[in-house]
Amino acid sequence: MTAAQATPSASPPTATPAGTTRRPRKRKRQLWRDLPAWGFLTPVAVLFVLFMVAPIGYALFLSFRTYKTQGLGLGKGARKEVWNGLENYAKALSDPEFLASVGRVLIYGLVLVPTMILLATIFALLLDSRRARLKQFSRVSIFLPYAVPAVISSLMWGFLYLPAVSPFHWLAGRAGVSLPNMVSPNLITFAVANIALWGGVGFNMVVIYTSLKAIPSELYEAAVLDGCTEFQIAVRVKVPIVAPAIIMTLLFSLISTLQVFAEPMTLKPLTNTVPSTWTPLMKIYRDAFVRDDIFSAAASSIVVAFVTFLVSFGFLRLVQGRAFNEDQ
C-alpha cells in the first residue's frame, strides 16, 4: 500500500523546460512498467467483463425492450423487437406476485439473519471459552452442514418435516401431543429459514471464531485480574473486538438471503405449499423459462441485483459510520 503511493510521487513533474519535454517518454516508460501487472490481471479482467459486466449490460438492454405484435400476430416476422422505455420496470414493480415475493423474502430475512448471526456468535464465543468441553467435536459438527448442498439439505429437512416420516411427529404421537405441520402455508417461511440456518450457522461461526482466535490474550488479562466473569469478558471485550467479523457475516447473510432459490425450489415438489413465485428469483425464473417473457425477467433481475447492491452498500456505509463514531 505504501509503495503504491510512493510510485506516482516518484515521478513529480519537474519545473524545468527539459522536464516537460521528457514527460511523454516517461508516460511511455510507465506504460511499459505497468505491462506485467496488467498481464497478471488480464484473465480475471476478461472473465469479469464477459461474465459479469456483459450479462448485466445485456440484461439492462433487454429490460428496455419488448415484442410488438404486428397485424394478426401470425407467421414469421409478425413479432418485432422494439424499445419499450421503462414499461417493463413499471410492470415488474407493480406486479402483485413480484411484490408478494419480495415481502416473503423480507420476512424470511428478518427471521433468519438475526437468528443465524446470534447463534453463530454464541457458538463461537463458547468455542473460545475455557470451561466448555468437547469443543473440537462441536466445532466440526456445527460446521459440517456447510459441506451439504442446499438442494440436499432441503431434501433431508423436507422429509424430516413430512408428518408421515418425521421423527418429531413420531415422538409427539407417542407423547400424545400433535405438532403443527411445518410445510403448511403458515409455517413454510420458518421451514425454509430453518434449512438456511442449518446450512449457514456453522460457516458464520467459523468466521467469528477465527477472528476470536486472533485476539491476543493480554487484551483481556487485565479484565481477568479485575475479577470479570467469562461472560462479562465475552460481551464487553471479545464481541466489540470481533465486531468487524460479525458485520461481514451479517453482510454475506443478507446477500444470500435475497437470492434464496434452491431451498424453496426443492421443497416445492415435496409439499405443494410453495407457489412457483415464492421468492423474487423463482418468479424471475418462471417469467424467463416458463412464460418465455425474457424482457420482464431481465427488468426484474436488474431490480433484484440493484436492490441487493444497494442493501449491501448501504449496510457497509451504515456500520462504517457507526464504528467511526465509536472510535471518537
Binding site: 440484461a59 437470492q259 441485483a305 449491501s312
Partner: peptide
C-alpha cells in the same frame, strides 16, 4: 457485492 446467483439469468 453483486451476488453470482442474480447474474445467472442474465448470463
Amino acid at each position: 457485492l453483486v451476488p453470482g446467483v442474480v447474474l445467472a439469468i442474465p448470463q
